[in-house]
Design a protein around this nucleic acid. Structure first.
Lengths: 164, 164
DNA sequence: CGTATTATGAGACACAGTCTCAATGATGCC
DNA sequence: GGCATCATTGAGACTGTGTCTCATAATACG
């Protein structure tokens, strides 16, 4: 935490910006939400704590945190922007359940190596990646078999989540 | 093409929907845009050809094409929805340039295998994935060095594209 | 044909995210 | 401390993508 704060301040100062109390509050709130979080939730958090933090300010601050390397964007559903902490953790990717939305993180060194290889092959300098596997978690697979309308043709697939 | 159409019709009929002329026109337009395309462009295409095709209809039709397996969503930037053809092609992923937005496709069997492995490890049934590498293409790397304000601290990183 | 049902289009609407601008807060100099 | 300067903030207007509504049109089928 203190480390992240120092890092943030360094980043800000290096470009003539200021570490204000609002920004500090946002950083704190961000670090408390360990996992992935949609921006909207973060704003609600701030409101709840009596920090006024307007939408505009939060939207302005998060990219700074990203540039400072404290956050990283997590493109979970493709619907909404969403972030997660980037400091003090190994890089990881996501496995998302289409049924219930559960997100599991995984790390796999081999992917990183292959990715660098691919980028190099095309002359790109790799700066990041999004890697997300989508499927059905064990519970949702079980639920699929059990309940109502087991194989009534249309019914099941109409109500499914957007097939991404 | 005829194949895709047949497939689409089968899909529609199987759930009591109709293969109308507008839907056929959308399918045709879609298949002509070989690569990735934003929805907006597709609507413009239709307008240009005198097919009226309203925004609403296009937005309604594309998910059908996706369910029929003719299209797949390509989460290119995370900003806008975008699709690409899914039939008659090997599965592939994307390498995107942060500078100019160029998209390069790549295939790599090894990824697919590892992905299945990961999903299995967590008990998930894998149904798809998004995999996108972001970086700088060779041209943009060159441009970075050449022109104005070569190392003026703030300037360069302020104007960069969203750091994803 | 006539009826029932699905499809369509125009535009209203919802909503995430951006922008504006006046007011406020921080900084540094005296 | 007091003051000038410049970044920051918040409220709300605004933008643009995507959704919904509803009256009308097209299609299927007896």
């Amino acid at each position: 935490m203190g480390q992240a704060l120092a890092r943030f301040e360094r980043h800000l100062v290096s470009r003539g910006l200021r570490l204000t109390s609002v920004r500090r509050a946002i950083l704190t709130a961000v670090l408390e939400r360990a996992g992935h979080f949609p921006i909207e939730d973060l704003i609600a958090d701030l409101k709840r704590r009596g920090i006024r933090g307007s939408k505009a300010t939060v939207y302005r601050t998060l990219p700074m945190l990203t540039e400072a390397g404290i956050l990283q964007q997590a493109v979970i559903t493709g619907d909404m922007r969403s972030y997660e902490a980037a400091v003090g953790r190994e890089h990881h990717d996501h496995l998302v359940c289409l049924g219930c939305g559960k997100v599991v993180e995984f790390e796999f060194e081999a992917f990183e190596i292959l990715q660098r290889e691919i980028a190099a092959r095309h002359g790109f300098r790799l700066e990041g990646h999004h890697h997300q596997l989508v499927g059905r978690c064990p519970e949702c697979q079980r639920k699929e078999l059990a309940p109502a309308a087991p194989l009534s043709e249309g019914g099941a697939s109409r109500t499914q989540h957007s097939p991404i």
